[in-house]
């Protein structure tokens, strides 16, 4: 795959050189955590010791709402950034570079994998900024049982897997499409359902039953829960480790399957 490295470097150069793209991407996480953290915080209606217990129940034991949603916001941010990996493919086609790529001997899949990898890389600094911002705001993120390297690794893995999953789906769609409007249409159609039919912002206890049932099959829920569990519980019990393994395993299996599918579909055809 002689094209993968130069193409990924190209994507990252374009990202760093475009100040609007670069800085909005870095500021966005602060907005997300501040706005979602305040807007959706139901626990403000609870008061007294009983209210505290109720809040803790619906937040799966988190000390406050921001601590609860950090996992969800990290995941959603990964999801949103990843969905736009496809738009770069359409831009390359309409602005011309795709013609150069397709007439050179590089593998077709390296064109698409460079987008996927660079979108995963772009998400990582955003994730760090989001966690720091959440930690610094008043009544923000708390690690009731401390924060270890393993916690950080688990969080990073979950975000990377969610980014792989959605950037591969949207990249494949983009290789079969010629216009930007269609891909924006699809992004707009699915982003809110993916975000709200999941445990990203609200726990199962807060949802209508049917919604809670559906949400457990959403990979966004798996990632949000995997991150949340380590933040809230710190040292995990063995049953919590099993559950953690299930979420990350499911994400990894899905990501691997989708990347493999991407490879085969893209090697077969990228629309000119």
């Amino acid at each position: 795959m002689s094209g993968l490295w130069p193409l990924t470097v190209r994507e990252l150069k374009k990202w760093v050189r475009n100040p609007t793209f670069f800085f909005t991407g870095l500021i966005q996480p602060i907005f997300w955590i501040a706005l979602f953290g305040s807007a959706f915080d139901i626990t403000k209606f609870f008061s007294g010791p009983e209210g505290g217990l109720a809040a803790s129940y619906i937040l799966d034991g988190a000390p406050n709402y921001i601590t609860y949603i950090v996992g969800g916001v990290l995941t959603t941010m990964g999801l949103f950034t990843a969905m736009f990996a496809g738009t770069q493919i359409i831009l390359d086609r309409s602005l011309g570079p795709m013609g150069r790529f397709l007439s050179s001997p590089i593998r077709r899949s390296s064109i698409v994998f460079s987008k996927i990898i660079s979108s995963v890389i772009r998400i990582l600094p955003q994730a760090v900024i989001l966690v720091v911002a959440a930690y610094l705001i008043p009544n923000g993120l708390k690690f009731p049982h401390g924060f270890t390297v393993i916690d950080a690794l688990i969080m990073t893995t979950a975000i990377i897997l969610i980014a792989f999953i959605f950037s591969s789906i949207f990249s494949v769609i983009a290789t079969r499409m010629t216009n930007m409007q269609s891909i924006f249409g699809i992004v707009n159609l699915v982003n809110l359902p993916l975000m709200f039919v999941s445990y990203a912002m609200f726990s199962r206890q807060m949802m209508a039953n049917w919604l809670g049932d559906v949400a457990q099959y959403n990979p966004v829920s798996w990632s949000a829960e995997a991150i949340r569990t380590v933040i809230i519980n710190g040292n995990l019990t063995s049953s919590q480790w099993v559950q953690e393994g299930r979420w990350l395993g499911a994400l990894a299996a899905l990501a691997a399957g989708l990347l493999l599918m991407t490879y085969y579909l893209v090697e077969k055809e990228i629309r000119d």
């Binding site: 190209r10 374009k14 050189r17 011309g96 570079p97």
Partner: peptide
């Protein structure tokens, strides 16, 4: 593809 060079009708260089 390895032994040919191509200068297509459209521009292919990356502007950034």
């Amino acid at each position: 593809r390895r032994l040919i060079g191509v200068v297509p009708q459209d521009f292919t260089a990356d502007e950034d």
